[in-house]
Design a protein around this nucleic acid. Structure first.
Lengths: 123, 123
DNA sequence: CTTGACTCCGTACTCAGCTACAGGGTCTAT
DNA sequence: ATAGACCCTGTAGCTGAGTACGGAGTCAAG
C-alpha cells in the first residue's frame, strides 16, 4: 500500500491499460519504478477531480512523440482544457458559496435558504 | 429531459433523498418547481467535480436554519472547503500542464515525455 | 525449516449509480 | 374513441470501479 492503493487495484489498472506491466523479479513479483508510482498517484488525484478511468487514460497518453501526431494531440489537449476550465469555474463558485456560508455562521446569522444553491443558480 | 436527465434518474435521486418528492398533479404526475430543477442541475455539476451522491447530499443540507446547529454546520462547511481548495489546486496544475503541452505542440517541439506527469509530480 | 505475511493468477463478488422492463394509467391529437 | 407518446410503480439488470477468494509460490524472521 505504498501509494495508498491496494495491490488488487493496481492489478485492475494494469488490466485496463492505465499502468504498463512493470518489470518483475526472478520470482515474478512486480517491481515499480518511482515514475510508475507517480503515474498511479496521478490516476487517483484525477479520479478525485471527476475524471473517469477512460478519460484519465486519454490524459496520460497526451504527449507529442511524433511531430506528425501533433495536431491531433493539440486538439484533444484543448478539449480537455475546456472541460478543466469549466470544472475550475464551478469549483470556484462552490468555494465562494461555502465561504459565504461559513461567514454567515460566524456572524450567527441563520439563513434558512441554501446559499449553495443560490450562488450556483445561474449557469 | 428538461435538464438533460432522464426520469428514471430523477426517481433514483428521489429514492436516495437527494430530491424531495415533488407535488403531484391530480393524476399523480410529478410537477417540478424551477428550484427543484436548479437542485437537480447542481447535483449533476457536483458529480462532474468528483463528489459522490452522498457528499452532494451533505452539501445540499448545509444551511443554517437554527442558530443552535450553527457550529456543526460551520465545521462541516470548513471541511468541504478544504477538499474543494485541494481540488482547485490540483485542477490548476493539470490546467497548467495541458497549456504547456499545447504550447509545445504549437511550437512544434515534440516532447516524448509526458508533461502532465512532470507537472503534477510533486504533490 | 517452519510459520506468518506477503505475492502470484484467475475468477467471482460487491457497491454506486444509473437504466430498462412490465403492466398499467393519462393526455393530446386526429 | 383510438393511437401514440408520455407518466406511474415496483423490480430487475447493467456498467464502472474496485474487492475478495482460493490455491499456490516466496521470502524474512525466529
Amino acid at each position: 500500500m505504498s501509494a495508498g492503493v491496494g495491490i488488487e487495484t493496481i492489478r485492475f489498472y494494469e488490466r485496463k491499460g492505465l499502468l504498463l506491466e512493470p518489470p518483475r523479479t526472478a520470482a515474478g513479483y512486480r517491481q515499480y519504478s518511482p515514475e510508475a508510482v507517480e503515474r498511479l498517484k496521478f490516476i487517483r488525484r484525477a479520479q478525485g477531480l471527476g475524471f473517469t478511468l477512460e478519460e484519465i487514460g486519454d490524459l496520460l497518453e497526451l504527449r507529442v512523440d511524433e511531430v506528425a501526431a501533433c495536431g491531433a494531440v493539440e486538439m484533444r489537449a484543448r478539449e480537455k482544457l475546456k472541460s478543466i476550465t469549466q470544472k475550475l469555474n464551478e469549483l470556484r463558485r462552490l468555494k465562494r458559496a461555502l465561504e459565504r456560508l461559513v461567514g454567515a455562521c460566524v456572524a450567527r446569522e441563520p439563513t434558512s435558504d441554501c446559499p449553495i444553491l443560490e450562488e450556483i443558480e445561474d449557469r
